[in-house]
C-alpha cells in the first residue's frame, strides 16, 4: 500500500511540476527574447557542444559568439570538432578553407660529430645556450652543437641527439615550434610538409669555400651549382634556400642532388612505402630501442 501511495503521488507531482516549469520557461523564452545573429546559432549547432574549453573560451557558445561577431577569426581552434567542424563553420561564415600543410621542424645541420672539425674540449654548463656564448666550442659557428636544448623543450619526445646532431622523429613531431624557439643558433625552422618526405638544405653555414671546408667536411660551400639547375633553389647569402611555394610532389630532385658535392642537400621525414620496398633487400643495421627501465632519461632536475 505504501509503495502504491508513493508511486501515484510521485507521478502526479512530477507531471504537475513538468507542466508548470515547461509553461514558465516557454513564457520566459518569448518574454525575454534577445536577438541573436542566426549565424551564431548555426555555429553553436556545428560545434560539438562538449564545452571542453580547449579553444580557450569558457564553452562552445562563447567560441561561437567570438566567431560569429568576428572577434576571433581562427576557425581551427576546436580540437574535438576536427576538420569536418572547421568545414561546417567555414560554410556558415562563407569562408573558403584552403588546404593546409602540416608544418614540422627541420634541423638545418646534418654534420655528425666526426664531420665537424676544430672541436675544443668544453667543460661548461652542458646547454647549447651556454656553449654558444663561448668562442671556439667547435669550428662551425653556425651548426648544431648537440647539447640537447631542443631535446629538453620537446613535449613529444620527437627530437634526439644522434651522432652529435639533433634529429627530428617525424612520426612524433607535431610542429609546435618549441625546439625552433629553443635553438640559440636558430638552425631549426618550420617547413610545410607537402608530402611525408621532404627535400631540405641541411646546412646553415653562411661562409664561403675554404672557410667552410676548414670547419666541416660536409657543409655547404656556397658553390651555387644547385641554384643553376633549378628555380626552386634560391641563394640566400652563401647557401641555398628552398622556395617551398614551387615545391611539388612530382619535382625531380635527381639533377639537383647530383650537383651537390658536399651532401648538404638531404631528404628528411617518413619514407614512403615504395622507397622502403626499394631498399628492403639491403642489409639494415639493427636498431636498438632505448630501454626506459634501465636508461637514465635526460630530464633535468634543478632547484
Amino acid at each position: 500500500m505504501l509503495t502504491f501511495v508513493t508511486v501515484i503521488l510521485a507521478a502526479a507531482v512530477l507531471v504537475l511540476l513538468a507542466i508548470a516549469m515547461g509553461w514558465v520557461l516557454g513564457w520566459a523564452n518569448r518574454a525575454f527574447y534577445v536577438y541573436v545573429d542566426p549565424k551564431i546559432l548555426e555555429i553553436q549547432d556545428a560545434l560539438p557542444g562538449a564545452n571542453c574549453g580547449g579553444c580557450g573560451y569558457v564553452g562552445c557558445n562563447s567560441y561561437a559568439d567570438a566567431l560569429g561577431t568576428g572577434a576571433d577569426e581562427d576557425l581551427t581552434l576546436c580540437g574535438p570538432g576536427g576538420t569536418s567542424c572547421v568545414g561546417a563553420i567555414a560554410e556558415i561564415l562563407g569562408i573558403e578553407v584552403t588546404e593546409v600543410w602540416p608544418y614540422k621542424a627541420v634541423v638545418h645541420c646534418a654534420a655528425k660529430l666526426d664531420e665537424r672539425l676544430l672541436k675544443m674540449e668544453y667543460q661548461g654548463e652542458p646547454t647549447c645556450a651556454a656553449a654558444n656564448l663561448v668562442a671556439g666550442f667547435q669550428g662551425c659557428i653556425y651548426g648544431c652543437m648537440g647539447l640537447s636544448d631542443c631535446v629538453r623543450v620537446c613535449d613529444y619526445d620527437a627530437i634526439h641527439i644522434v651522432d652529435g646532431v639533433a634529429v627530428v622523429d617525424y612520426e612524433k613531431c607535431t610542429g609546435c615550434k618549441l625546439c625552433a624557439a629553443a635553438c640559440p643558433r636558430n638552425i631549426i625552422t618550420m617547413v610545410p610538409f607537402k608530402r611525408s618526405e621532404m627535400f631540405v638544405v641541411a646546412c646553415s653555414n653562411d661562409d664561403f669555400g675554404k672557410e667552410v671546408q676548414s670547419v666541416c667536411t660536409v657543409g655547404c660551400t656556397g658553390c651555387m651549382s644547385c641554384s643553376r639547375v633549378s628555380d626552386m633553389m634560391v641563394m640566400d647569402g652563401n647557401r641555398p634556400a628552398i622556395n617551398y611555394d614551387l615545391y611539388e610532389d612530382f619535382t625531380d630532385f635527381e639533377p639537383i642532388l647530383e650537383k651537390c658535392k658536399r651532401s648538404s642537400l638531404i631528404f628528411v621525414g617518413i619514407p614512403t612505402e615504395g622507397q622502403v620496398a626499394a631498399v628492403a633487400d639491403e642489409e639494415v643495421p639493427e636498431r636498438i630501442e632505448a630501454d626506459f627501465q634501465t636508461t637514465v632519461d635526460d630530464t633535468e632536475w634543478r632547484g
Binding site: 505504501l2 501511495v5 508513493t6 503521488l9 511540476l17 516549469m21
Partner: peptide, 27 residues
Amino acid sequence: TTVDLSVLSYIIYIFVIASSVQFVEMY
C-alpha cells in the same frame, strides 16, 4: 497512511535547479 516522497528528491532538485537557472539566465 504515511506519505513520504523523499525518493523524488534527486530528480526534483536537478529538475528544479536546472530550469530555474535557465530562467534566471534568460532574465
